[in-house]
Design a protein around this nucleic acid. Sequence first.
RNA 1: GAGGUUGUAGCUCAGUCGGUAGAGCAACGGACUUUUAAUCCGUAGGUCUCGGGUUCGAGCCCCGACAGCCUCACCA
Length: 507
Amino acid sequence: MTNPPNEEPLGGGAMLEASRREKLQRLIELGVDPWGGRFDGHAPIGQIRAREGKIVVEPVGDCATGQSPEQHGPTVRAAGRIVLQRRKGKLIFLDIRDWTGQIQIFVGKSQVGNDGWELAQCFDLGDLVGVDGELKRTKTGELTVFAEKLHFLAKSLEPPPAKHKGLRDPELRQRMRYLDLIHTEGALERALARTKIVQSIRATLAGQGFVEVEGPTLHAIAGGAAARPFVTHHNALDIDLYLRIALELHLKRLLVGGIERVYELGRVYRNEGISPRHNPEFTMLEAYQAYGDYRTMMDLTEKILADAIRATGESLVLPWGETQIDFTPPFERKTYNELFEQHAGASPDDEPAVRALGDELGFVTRGKHIDVVKNDVFEAKVESALTGPVFVCDYPASICPLTKRKAGDPNVAERFELFVAGMEVANAYTELNDPDLQEALFNRQLDGLAAEDSMARMDRDFLRALRHGMPPAGGLGVGIDRLVMLLTNSPTIREVILFPLLRPEAE
RNA sequence: GAGGUUGUAGCUCAGUCGGUAGAGCAACGGACUUUUAAUCCGUAGGUCUCGGGUUCGAGCCCCGACAGCCUCACCA
């Protein structure tokens, strides 16, 4: 390539793009639209590969002379992105990839003719092309489409990453997820696995008679969880609104309204930090079943998980890092106190010992309710030990403001959290439907929590709904992103969220 | 928000003691009709993240900013 005179020599990146633009120009001169158009009748590459058995080998000639036998294969049409290119004189070997697989294309000058050969001279790595040809094997046995006609479908003007190492920089992988999906081993599969999991969850719930609804994402009162909300503003009404932090309170209104099995699977927003397990927007499932309780939701949880794993085509024993997790139901069921005793090294009923543990761990314990201290200790000492899957059952009532108390023991709430690999992936209650107790719990400031962080925002309409009578019910929440992490062996939430929050790119 | 760590060609990465900026892939030119990360010959490509400072001299040392990652905090 020569630079026009009187112009600055191009830098590396600009030079790479210029060479591609030159080929784009050449395509136009050949009368080819570099941006292609509708391309009918092509088969997914995975399906094309499955037709390998249709290749017929006729041993013509003499085997003794080493003459290669004649092959006849099916005529196929494929479309995909060029991911590798090997030019060898008047031959080109292309590897093209679509979302079902990858296959080699043989382009010979005499086989595709001068027009086809000229077209192939305009190919760059990353271009999208189509091909008609015969499916056969090469001398070395590689399944190959022997091109008879080439089609240009779209030009790629940016150079792709290093052809085998791909994108390594996690920042680039997240900012340019499109490149990550193309070039990172397993990235596309993981994205599609997430879709399969979500589809499976919807199918399981539908099979159990649940209906899906869409609650509001803009809330006047952000309730249903203890989290700081994002604030936004409605201009016409001139009011501040909050992005929802949970689905709970509106779904329960629908329970009052007679939608007896109801769920929502959608995005919630929490104005908090980012970590390998947290993204400010994440996907939550909440499901409510009238006349059930938290045990009903345990069975449902097991079914949702087992179905989802089967939907991804995996066995119920899944790899997780260096270890494995067995998701075969039923999952272990242990009480909170039992696990506390086992892993924290103190009796949960021995208040001085629990407080001492809290002090030891560096928590502020003074003036805090014993259950808050106990839960701090639990989170620090017990949760990480729960490789699970294990249902942690029967939480201290005072840290569960939306949960029904156990009959005969007002200090214990009918709640479970499902832990796997030290992560909470599900949280379920026997839902509190006593409006007076609910109001009292909203009113009671939880010890040690600032008002803006607590559940203590009063949603009066929700209480009014409860006063109209909510059926006793079981409710379940599942963090979909974390579930997908576990089911796809992904160490960070950023691997399973296509576009995680990043600071804006500097200009 | 705090601490640690990383930032060098389009991508992946080297860069010694502070002394003229390196490789592989990709690109460009050439050879090659069954390659497999093709090979071989040649060419070009740099605001060393940004801004200060120390120094005769900074990719390297110091200060600050920006961004990613890790740990912690908030939280699920």
